[in-house]
Design a protein around this nucleic acid. Structure first.
Length: 426
DNA sequence: TCTGGGGTCCTAGGACCC
DNA sequence: TCTGGGGTCCTAGGACCC
């Protein structure tokens, strides 16, 4: 059996942890730049605040109902996420836990006797809540996809389920699948849902009756086959190794306000490159390819949801590296190539790919090897920035004015990761 | 006026190899 | 005039996730 543990309204729960006065009150958390709503407490959901909808559209409801609004505080969420995951690792052992996202983890339960499963689910929920203060829902079933189905049903009716649901019999499986709309199935997004509805497949149960050949043809080949097998109760999606390195690392941001000058673009690109290189070094890797993209601001506003054009460029390095200055140079050159005078930009990003572990970087016959020693300098910079303050040490190319910096009007303190922002008890 | 950020996997098709 | 069979690697693009 496989369990999925999923934190309830995770970002909102994190904010509430240090603001107990907001318990039972409507709370929302906004995306970077205070653009969209990315987390809602149950109370906010009940008021009809839409998920992933733009903040400005929900503003009337928010103001009328005195909803508390937060900008996203990733230092806080990252730290609390670590505590939740660590609790699970202590309970089950590191090798049984697969962290799937900031607020979700799968747990392999191959040694638990079937009669104990239900109790175990409750025990997971209670322990995480007691140790971290974060409420979670637990779904358990024979496959990952079915565990997700169970988890969704557990969350949907919290009073009845106590945030715990187990699918352990054939009857339960069928019942659960019949209650699950096709667009709520893990792995079915907007396009597939539309397609399936045209074929009169409206619930997870309908889909589970389809045969393999059909799924291969209509749901993206092997991906669709795996999904349907899992719905039938046959495990196909394996547990992943925890320690795999990222294959792509990106840092991308909307600008606080539209940008028209090359200097700001270059500063932003240099800053994002530094961030991305930091992430790269944290997993002890180097990248051989660096890409830069700029997104223009859409000028005609007739569409209800408009994205500007994206222009991209990438550079292959002679030798894979994680040294910030070696990455900034080509990044800025690309930014200069992409930039067009007179165009209005709203977003930029840097992507590192072709990532290899530092232990297996392939040398280049024609390139001096000595640059590798500068890795030590990077470690010093990372340590200072991590322990003191972000960007205490930075490259001049990153600039000092930062007019393009994103907007965050409702940021809460970094309660758990900065000494001078600790929660004070009066 | 105002709509996020960071990832994964898979497929098809072209270039190239012996 | 006649022109095989079996591969690999890379890239772009499409789908999905939270």
């Amino acid at each position: 059996m496989i369990a999925i543990v999923d934190c309830n309204s995770f970002y909102c729960s994190c904010e509430r942890l240090f603001r107990p006065d907001l318990e039972q009150k409507p709370v929302v958390v906004l995306s970077n730049n205070d653009g969209c709503i990315i987390s809602r407490s149950d109370e906010a959901k009940q008021l009809g605040v839409a998920m992933a909808g733009p903040y400005f559209k929900a503003k009337p409801i928010i103001e009328q109902n005195d909803v508390t609004v937060f900008s996203s505080n990733y230092n806080l969420y990252g730290d609390l996420s670590w505590r939740v995951m660590e609790t699970l690792r202590v309970m089950f052992g590191t090798e049984k836990v697969e962290v799937y996202s900031v607020d979700e983890a799968f747990i392999k339960l191959d040694t638990t006797p079937p009669t104990e499963i239900e109790n175990l689910a409750t025990q997971i929920k209670n322990t995480v809540e007691q140790w971290t203060g974060i409420k979670v829902s637990v779904g358990i079933a024979a496959t990952k996809v079915l565990a997700k189905v169970a988890n969704r049903l557990a969350k949907k009716n919290k009073q009845l389920t106590n945030c715990v649901a187990v699918i352990h019999t054939e009857t339960k499986r069928i019942e659960a699948l019949k209650k699950t709309n096709i667009d709520s199935v893990w792995g079915i997004g907007f396009s597939y849902a539309e397609k399936l509805k045209k074929h009169r497949i409206n619930t997870a149960y309908d889909l589970s009756l389809k045969d393999i050949v059909w799924c291969k043809k209509h749901l993206g080949g092997v991906v669709g086959v795996r999904l349907v097998q899992e719905l039938k109760g046959i495990p196909c999606i394996t547990m992943h190794d925890e320690l795999t390195d990222k294959k792509m690392i990106a840092t991308t941001r909307m600008f606080g306000e539209a940008v028209t000058d090359i200097e700001s673009i270059k500063e932003a690109v240099a800053t994002y490159t530094s961030r991305a290189a930091e992430k790269l070094r944290r997993q002890n890797c180097s990248a051989k390819t660096i890409g830069v993209f700029l997104v223009t601001k859409q000028q005609n506003h007739n569409a209800s949801f408009n994205r500007g054009a994206t222009i991209t460029s990438h550079t292959k390095l002679e030798v894979a590296t994680s040294l910030t200055h070696l990455l900034i140079k080509p990044a800025i050159a690309m930014a200069e190539r992409l930039f067009q005078q007179g165009t209005v930009y709203k977003k930029a990003g840097v992507m590192l790919s072709n990532i290899v572990n530092d232990t297996s970087v392939q040398g280049n016959l024609f390139v001096d090897e000595s640059t590798n020693k500068q890795r030590f300098l990077m470690d010093v910079i990372d340590n200072i920035n991590f322990s003191q303050r972000d960007d205490m040490l930075k490259y001049a190319a990153s600039g000092t004015t930062r007019n393009w910096k994103m907007q965050q009007l409702f940021h809460s303190p970094k309660y758990t990761s900065r000494w001078n922002e600790l929660c004070l008890v009066q």
